[in-house]
Design a protein around this nucleic acid. Structure first.
Lengths: 232, 232
DNA sequence: GTTGAACATGTTGTATACAATATTGGGGTG
DNA sequence: CACCCCAATATTGTATACAACATGTTCAAC
């Protein structure tokens, strides 16, 4: 794979796994050194990531990882069922060709990652699973919204795949089973069932994510001292 | 305004007004000469437009205006009410500060453009009107979908603001009145009414746009002879 | 001690030259 | 005449040098 593409993919997954903190600075020179490319292609990568909602670029002030503030998260929880349910319905109706097989492959890798206790991979494969459902829906208008939801969904789910207790491990297994059930619904083109399973899956995620949000009284953002002072 | 920004805005509005044909090629050297900037910032503009769904970039093959094929348009008609209605509801609930005043300003300019028979401006102000409603909704997850819908909506509405007959002029006036009614609904924070008016407004647009689509038996895309041969 | 201005430094934005990749056209072969 | 290969050309991708802008620091004035 070409270094520019690798840079794009690495940044993307580092953002999704919270390896790059929300609100964190993305210094051009540093990233150039890190990925061994010059500033021109690096800036194009940042532009692309900005278009996809991973990064925020400010004129003359550089790029940051998109932040995750609490008011926005409230909007997230409000909006997710609408998008997810509609995408699931469309996916059941419209998927074609090898798309379902690709989904099964992703699910296989997802299951493996959860079994082998590889939380970062599990989170990324779960992301890929839901993005693939978006592709199956065949709706270029809804897809950008879905992708933006998935960014924050995956970031908030990071702790989910690092189960501390047995009870939490059970939830991961349950999520995995729900994926299997969803695949079956897509295969049978049973749209109402797909919607229902999707909403169940959402309920599970939501409970987990709300715990994640509540758990952490500190803002998820990296806030510079200066900005903090302004806030006071 | 800086030349790079002007380049971005000009390309954007030229695409929306069909001045740049869907599927049409965007040559870097040509655009550089046209806007008096070098290739580096021009490419960044194209990246940005690509992220917003105005332009498609293919590796080593340059940029094109996003195409408008018939299957996608079918998806458009299927998806629009969902997005528009939900955005309207959220806008009624969540708008704040000067957002409503900004909307009124846009509506004023829109009305003026329709009265003075300035179809391109009317189409752009109508676009701005609905984009502003998107801002008022305060939902960063739904907004990208709305914006993508509006791109094709505005492109398909181009003939709408060039009314040939009196009967068509009546429809434009009706659309304008609906905007006023929507503003009133937002002002009173009457979400159900806003949804209802939005769906009525959509019905009017849809009839008009379907006529536009049917009217033209040739594909809206610029298809090269080579691609045509492939299709045969 | 605080404020403000000027300078020094670092970071981002742009232009240009060069490299890599597509496309086109011509000549040769079956 | 059709087809294919190869060279010539055009277009896109990358690196680098320079310009513009933002930030942080120093020093002087109050």
């Amino acid at each position: 794979m070409d270094r520019k593409t690798k840079c794009h993919n690495d940044l993307r997954s580092q953002i999704l796994t919270l390896d790059r903190a929300p609100g964190g600075d993305l210094d051009e020179a540093g990233l150039c050194a890190e990925f061994g490319i010059s500033r021109t292609p690096l800036r194009e990568v940042l532009q692309k990531l900005s278009g996809a909602g991973f990064v925020e670029i400010t004129q003359n002030k550089g790029a940051k990882v998109v932040s995750m503030d609490l008011p926005t998260m409230r909007v997230f929880f409000q909006t997710a069922p609408l998008i997810y349910a509609n995408v699931a319905r469309l996916a059941a109706d419209n998927h074609r060709g090898n798309q379902l097989n690709d989904l099964k492959d992703i699910q296989r890798r997802f299951k493996l990652a959860t079994r082998e206790n590889d939380p970062a991979t599990a989170a990324m494969e779960n992301h890929a699973f839901h993005e693939q459902i978006g592709e199956m829906a065949g709706n270029p208008y809804l897809l950008p919204s879905l992708k933006r939801m998935l960014i924050d969904h995956t970031r908030m789910s990071q702790t989910f795949y690092r189960p501390a207790s047995d009870a939490e491990q059970v939830l991961v297994t349950k999520a995995c089973d729900q994926h299997d059930a969803m695949i079956a619904a897509f295969e049978g083109r049973e749209a109402p069932l797909a919607i229902d399973l999707t909403l169940q899956h959402w309920d599970l995620s939501r409970d987990q994510m709300e715990r994640f949000v509540r758990q952490d009284p500190l803002p998820v953002d990296v806030i510079s001292l200066k900005e903090k002072r302004h806030a006071v």
